[in-house]
Design a protein around this nucleic acid. Structure first.
Lengths: 284, 284
DNA sequence: ACCCGAATAGAAAATATTTTCCAACTTTTT
DNA sequence: AAAAAGTTGGAAAATATTTTCTATTCGGGT
């Protein structure tokens, strides 16, 4: 038995490729299956995988031992970790944790470090955003935006800048947009008029503002379509949404940023502008 | 027990969201864990997942049953299938190559590509930000912020979200902050009072808003310190600034984003909060 | 054709994981 | 304040999965 089994997938894969020709026939069968179907190895049981490559379960165990592991399970762990750390959704919280562990070792009060820390957290959030947002949701949103006579934007407190940005940039692509800003406490006066031909985009994060919630409820009651941008699909505002974007924005030392939300807002507006045929949206 | 448990992940996820508020406390814990960590549910064992969301294994089984399955295993199957079908797992480099090939030939208007393009531009802008901002400017800004009795924020049009965000987050670190929002065209009424003991932070980009310019001039006339966030040192608002940050934000298809500016804003507030001795800034 | 060592299949044993069940506890109702 | 209904923790039972072990097969060398 080998002393140092490969401890990451990439190493294991090349080791398998390297020794392939020395393997016995059955082990070759296993080898090619393993290389071709890493996800199946990660997820299915030994028995299932065995029958898929037409081999006994024990053969896979032997295969694992040949490459230095104590059994098939130990080898499977590598494939599982690969999914957890990289693939589709590189567990956002995990990456944040790793990043924070790193940035703890440096003097955190040096100003340029604070800046760097922010920038990097925001970058991670942006990378995550691309993976987390479903194309269908974007599609549906654009469709709703096209169909709307007027788009009403709701967002208080931390979400306010996002709503404001949406209102601003929508008017710049020549879409009637109206910010329910609650000036003079007139949110309800501003929102009673919205109807099925309109659209509400509500932005709301953790301590969900009651005004925003009220707008959402009015929208639902009046039959107005609703797009929600929030931090969880479990938020009270997400309930009645036709489309709900769940945004995990960067958090640095208890402070959440808006980068990812703003990026989504931008994407919505520009996609709308292009799809609507404005090849060159009005210069902002 | 329900007759038709959701038979694909997306359905299950929205069902969980829909019924969230009716669930018991422990089941809520499980619900948010499940929505946030689909991959862990797919791969780790019940016991591991249970301890991750601080619950007994049996609670997860109950959770599955509440949603109509015969047990946790049956629900887990959905998460596993998602991984198996969504990632047609050829080797990683292979996938990258495929993606690039696709995105070069394919309609660049495909929505996910628009999103990716934005995210990437913003990432580049953030990376640039770290290099472009001088530590001395940050230092000096923090000092000015500390010295100020009240901080006035000015920003119209595209810059408005940044100013709004600053106003919001400054009040959350217990700094008197006041947004000169121009409601009712009262900018000048709002700004005559600012004096040398205060501080103005003005945010302004290309077609420089006259209101912002007016605020800047009032500040200069009244001897109030001034920090400017703008897209050029040569902008009219930058003239009288004590500190001027020159921000090159991402531009995608004629549209400028605010990511870098927002990131700088965040940095200013947090740095201030920490330097000022609030080891734990008020939760936002 | 026979022997020998390596490779293999398959069943049995060991281990791990999930599910069930019930007593204890909490919350709500009366 | 007591009873009822619902929720929870935890241990025991059931199930599934992996690993070990041995008899058998296979293939090359004599």
């Amino acid at each position: 038995m080998k002393q140092n089994p490969p401890d990451n997938l990439e190493m294991l894969r090349s080791e398998i490729a390297r020794r392939y020709s020395d393997l016995s026939p059955r082990l070759k069968q296993v080898a090619s299956y393993v290389l071709d179907n890493p996800n199946d190895i990660a997820i299915e049981t030994l028995a299932v995988n065995a029958s898929r490559c037409d081999v006994q379960p024990s053969t896979i165990v032997r295969f694992g031992k040949v490459f230095g592991y104590n059994g098939a399970r130990e080898m499977q762990r590598l494939f599982r970790d690969e999914i957890l750390t990289s693939a589709p959704s590189p567990s956002y919280s995990e990456r944040i944790r790793q990043f924070q562990a790193r940035s703890n070792t440096v003097d955190r009060l040096l100003l340029c470090n604070v800046m760097r820390e922010f920038a990097e957290s925001n970058i991670i959030a942006l990378e995550h955003l691309c993976e987390a947002v479903h194309t269908e949701d974007l599609d549906k949103s654009i469709e709703l935006m096209q169909g709307a006579h007027t788009i009403y934007l709701a967002g208080m407190r931390r979400a306010f800048p996002v709503a404001a940005y949406l209102a601003y940039s929508l008017s710049h692509v020549e879409k009637r947009a109206f910010l329910l800003d609650g000036v003079a406490g007139m949110t309800s006066e501003q929102s009673w008029m919205l109807g099925p031909e309109d659209l509400v985009i509500a932005v709301s994060f953790k301590p969900y503002a009651s005004e925003t919630l009220a707008v959402v409820e009015t929208a639902a009651a009046n039959g107005a379509p609703l797009i929600v941008i929030s931090d969880s699909r479990l938020s009270p505002v997400a309930r009645a949404a036709d489309v709900c974007f769940e945004i995990k924005d960067a958090e640095v030392r208890q402070f959440r940023s808006l980068t990812a939300s703003m990026c989504l807002a931008q994407t919505l507006v520009i996609s709308y502008a292009y799809k609507f045929g404005l090849d060159r949206p009005a210069k902002e």
